[in-house]
Write a protein that binds this DNA or RNA. Structure first.
Length: 190
DNA sequence: CGAATGATATACT
DNA sequence: GTATATCATTCGA
């Protein structure tokens, strides 16, 4: 079933990042429908999180969408070439988001291979995940309860021991906040 | 392990 | 408007 708006409006982004593991991300982009299980996420927890683009309440054209009501996509370009998909959470004006770092193909694996230019059944980073799903900067602000990007709960549930948490990747500039255990992924073999 | 890559934010003139 | 530093990464060696 489609994840309801209320899932995205909860006030703590960290358990949302954890709960997204096992949910199914769907896209219908360029006439191609693909779906994939979310296997790795990271939480970015608002204006007090030094790793977040919204640290200190910063507002720029790029990160404006982080301040939207939960349940939209925040897509930005990193290192000039990689498009990264984030899921905006919390109420209007509170900039929380979850970075989707990894997916595993369910439907449309051949489309994902073609987009990636190589085998893409399982992606190995946030840039490759977004690319396989067809998501690019133009999808910034897309409503996740709409027809081009959405997330479904197929009832997959993982016990706590199947999930690993640890420090986020690539945020060494964030000082002590770089050590927060805001990254979640499936233990090998899960 | 290290170079590539160019959008973006910020600090200037 | 122009300049510069930075970057929630990726790929090939």
């Amino acid at each position: 079933m489609l994840l309801p708006r209320s899932f995205y409006l909860r006030d703590d982004v960290v358990p949302i990042a954890r709960d997204l593991l096992g949910m199914t991300l769907h896209t219908r982009i360029d006439g191609q429908h693909v779906s994939a299980a979310i296997t790795e996420t990271e939480a970015y927890a608002g204006i007090n999180d030094r790793a977040s683009h919204a640290y200190g309440g910063r507002r720029t054209p790029r990160n404006e969408m982080m301040y939207a009501e939960g349940g939209r996509a925040y897509v930005y370009i990193c290192y000039g070439i990689h498009h990264l998909l984030n899921i905006v959470t919390h109420l209007l004006g509170v900039p929380h988001a979850v970075l989707v770092r990894g997916v595993r193909a369910i439907e449309g694996a051949t489309v994902m291979d073609r987009r990636r230019g190589r085998a893409a059944a399982t992606t190995d980073g946030p840039g490759t995940a977004a690319q396989a799903m067809g998501i690019r900067r133009a999808h910034d602000g897309t409503d996740l309860l709409g027809a081009s990007i959405w997330i479904e709960d197929d009832g997959v549930r993982y016990p706590d021991q199947a999930i690993v948490s640890g420090p986020r990747i690539g945020v060494n500039y964030a000082g002590a906040d770089a050590l927060l255990p805001y990254r979640f992924f499936l233990r090998k073999g899960s």
